[in-house]
C-alpha cells in the first residue's frame, strides 16, 4: 500500500520557522512507522533527523507525535493507523533541536531531581537486601519506565509550565518510594509536595494513554498524592 507521510521539518541553520514535508512511500501493513522514517532518510532525503536506537521499544529514543498522539515510532504498525496519511511531529513542550529531535535535558533534570536510585545507609546484610514477592510487586509497574518522555510531553500541565516535574519523574519517584528496601521515601514525598510537584496533575490521563510501556502513570501519581495527603504508604 502507498502511505503519505507528512513530516515536521526544521533545520536551525537554515529555517526561521518549521514547515511540513510530504513523502509518498510504499509500505507493508506490518511495517512500523520507524521503518518508514528510515526509508525516507535512506532513500529520499538524508537530511531528515530523528532519534532511534534499539528499534524494539526498549531504549526510549523515538517517542514522537504520530497522527497527533505520542507514541514510539518503533511500536506503531502501519496497519494500526486507521489512515494512509501519517503525520509525524516532535513531542510538545520540549524545544526542537532539529526535525523530530527535541532537547531532552529539561526532562532528565526533573528525573534526576527525584533521586532515582536506591538510598539506604544501613549496613547491608551479608546477602542481598531481600524483599518478599508482594513487596516487589508493589512497585513493579513503575520499574518498566524507559524514559521516553511520551507521558510528560502529552501533559497539558507540562505544556503550560515546564517547572512541573511531569509524570515521568513522578513515575520514577514512585519506583523508589514504594520499594521496601529504600529509606528516602519521606524526602522524595517532600520534594513532590510542592505546587510544581504532584499538584500540577489534574487527572487528565493523557500520560497513561501515551505510555508505550502501558504503565498506569496517573495511578502512580494518584498513589503519591494519597501518600502525601495521608502521610502513609499503605
Amino acid at each position: 500500500m502507498q502511505v503519505k507521510l507528512k513530516i515536521f521539518r526544521y533545520n536551525p541553520e537554515k529555517d526561521k520557522k518549521p514547515h511540513y514535508e510530504t513523502y509518498k512511500v510504499e509500505a507493508e501493513p506490518t511495517d512500523r512507522v520507524l521503518d518508514l522514517l528510515e526509508y525516507v532518510k535512506g532513500y529520499i532525503d538524508g537530511t531528515l533527523s530523528f532519534r532511534r536506537s534499539c528499534a524494539h521499544g526498549v531504549c526510549g529514543s523515538d517517542a514522537m507525535r504520530i497522527n497527533g498522539v505520542n507514541y514510539l515510532a518503533c511500536k506503531v504498525l502501519v496497519k494500526d493507523i486507521k489512515s494512509s496519511k501519517i503525520t509525524i511531529e516532535p513531542m510538545l513542550g520540549l524545544s526542537v533541536i532539529k526535525d523530530l529531535i527535541v532537547d531532552m535535558e529539561p526532562f532528565f533534570d526533573h528525573f534526576r531531581s527525584m533521586m532515582p536510585y536506591l538510598v539506604n545507609d544501613e549496613t547491608p546484610p551479608g546477602t542481598e537486601r531481600l524483599q518478599s514477592p508482594e513487596e516487589r510487586e508493589r512497585f513493579d509497574d513503575t520499574t518498566k519506565c524507559i524514559l521516553c518522555a511520551a507521558c510528560t510531553t502529552s501533559c497539558p500541565s507540562y505544556w503550560a509550565n515546564d517547572k512541573y516535574v511531569g509524570p515521568a519523574a513522578i513515575v520514577n519517584a514512585h519506583r523508589f518510594i514504594f520499594d521496601s528496601r529504600d529509606r528516602a521515601a519521606a524526602e522524595r514525598l517532600n520534594i513532590l509536595n510542592d505546587q510544581f510537584g504532584v499538584y500540577r496533575c489534574h487527572t487528565i490521563f493523557n500520560c497513561t494513554i501515551a505510555c508505550p510501556r502501558e504503565i498506569q502513570v496517573t495511578t502512580a501519581i494518584g498513589e503519591i498524592k494519597k501518600a502525601i495527603a495521608t502521610g502513609s504508604l499503605d
Binding site: 526544521y10 536551525p12 518549521p18 507525535r65 497522527n67 497527533g68 498522539v69 510538545l92 513542550g93 520540549l94 524545544s95 526542537v96 533541536i97 532539529k98 532537547d103 529539561p106 502529552s154 497539558p156 505544556w159 503550560a160 515546564d162 487528565i204 490521563f205 493523557n206 494513554i209
Partner: peptide, 22 residues
C-alpha cells in the same frame, strides 16, 4: 539554537488525547 518550547493553544488542542482530555 532550536525552537522555543512554547506550546501554542491550537497545537495543544490538536493533541489527540481523546475523551478524558476533552
Amino acid at each position: 539554537m532550536g525552537l522555543n518550547r512554547r506550546v501554542r493553544f491550537f497545537a495543544g488542542l490538536r493533541y489527540r488525547g481523546g475523551g478524558p482530555m476533552w
